[in-house]
């Protein structure tokens, strides 16, 4: 990983040997990413079975506080990473999208386990969203049903690696325009994603025409 202390302390400048213990040179991007990657606060937010493994990861044996992640915040405003730990259902997804919108930038999403990644064993179910990435931009997918704590730790470290490679110039929270919130889905006869409304209208017209043709 290039965010280790060694990597930080190897700039491409010659520092006189007598100053090497006192002076450290690095780039703004590196120090910025290094500090962010090591203090990613997850949101205290459990959905299903995976949440129990997330709790186990937070507990003594696996202990993700070693990676600067022990501060789980119950408020989305205070958290950096949303660990979607379990099955996303149609009834719950409006709340999940709202929580994501409430998180302040920089924010990341981890899809923990098979259900959050793609619906998992419950994908065929009528009230299950086949993966949280239908609504949120997912940064890391963790396979498993549920993933073991080791797998979750690996996923979190993968996120740290991703963070440490981000470019200051491309970060969306420094863009000129603020990023748009994700439209919150509605609960109708089935889940209504506002982004799919044109398609729903087209389909409705289509089935209507078919019925008329039948008559």
């Amino acid at each position: 990983m290039n965010d280790s202390a060694d990597a930080l302390n190897t700039p491409r400048y010659d520092i006189p040997p007598e100053l090497q213990q006192q002076v450290h040179l690095t780039t703004l991007e590196r120090i910025y990413n290094w500090s962010r990657a090591n203090s990613t606060w997850p949101m205290m937010f459990g959905l299903a079975c995976c949440a129990i493994e997330m709790i186990a990861t937070a507990a003594g044996r696996y202990d993700f506080s070693r990676f600067g992640m022990e501060v789980m915040r119950a408020s989305p405003r205070q958290s950096d990473v949303m660990i979607v730990s379990g099955t996303v259902t149609k009834k719950m997804v409006p709340q999940i999208v709202r929580l994501y919108n409430q998180m302040s930038e920089p924010k990341y999403v981890i899809a923990m386990g098979a259900c959050a990644s793609g619906g998992g064993p419950f994908k065929e179910g009528y009230s299950v969203v086949a993966g949280v990435d239908k609504f949120l931009p997912v940064d890391v997918y963790i396979p498993g049903c549920p993933p073991t704590p080791q797998a979750l730790l690996h996923g979190l470290m993968t996120l740290q690696r991703k963070i440490s490679q981000e470019k200051l110039g491309e970060m969306r929270w420094y863009a000129k325009q603020p990023s748009e919130p994700i439209p919150v889905p509605l609960l109708g006869p089935d889940l209504i994603d506002p982004r799919k409304l044109p398609l729903i209208r087209k389909q409705a017209a289509h089935t209507g025409a078919e019925e008329e043709a039948d008559e």
Partner: peptide, 14 residues
């Protein structure tokens, strides 16, 4: 048709 786990009744007008 929606490329997703969705279906609506035929008379559904959003």
């Amino acid at each position: 048709p929606y490329g997703d786990n969705l279906q609506y009744p035929p008379d559904f007008d959003p």
